[in-house]
């Protein structure tokens, strides 16, 4: 831990809409961004479904919160780790996920992707490198 900054990992393992966990997890991330900690998000198991593009909730009467993921860069939340094995198991590829970008102030506001697709082994490394893990 450096300068009182802790590494926070938000673990998302649940699909959106069937339960409220995904939405209320995102609410914590957005509030937490104000605390200037080192924040990462992990998407594995059914959590990868949260990032699928073209979600349209009109006909179920529930708010579509998926566009909010694209605002995370403005909150300096730029590390969204997505597990490749979880995508594979669910018949998904990177092309099925929405594009989420952030602007790097240090490189003349160059646009960079926030989603990083990593292996299960790498996900285990990310998890074991944290100070605080919040699970949803």
């Amino acid at each position: 831990m450096e300068d009182g900054v802790k590494k926070f990992l938000y673990v998302n393992r649940k699909a959106p809409y069937g339960t409220i966990y995904a939405l209320e997890s995102l609410e914590v991330v957005l509030i937490g961004a104000a605390f200037d900690q080192d924040v990462s998000l992990a998407f594995l198991d059914d959590g990868v479904f949260q990032l699928v593009k073209s979600q349209d909730t009109k006909d179920i009467g529930v708010k579509n919160f998926s566009p909010t993921f694209r605002a995370l860069g403005d909150y300096e939340v730029t590390k969204l780790f997505v597990e490749k094995e979880s995508l594979d198991e669910r018949g998904l590829t990177a092309d099925d996920l929405q594009e989420i970008m952030w602007e790097d102030e240090d490189e003349d506001y160059a646009e960079k992707p926030s989603i990083r697709i990593i292996s299960r082994t790498e996900m285990a490394d990310v998890m074991s490198d944290q100070d605080v893990i919040l699970s949803f």
């Binding site: 009182g4 914590v28 509030i31 937490g32 919040l134």
Partner: peptide, 20 residues
Amino acid sequence: SGLGQLIEMGIETDRLMTFG
């Protein structure tokens, strides 16, 4: 109170446990 209390708890404590 607000969600900030949750983040603050994560910062101020040595271990965070979630029961859900």
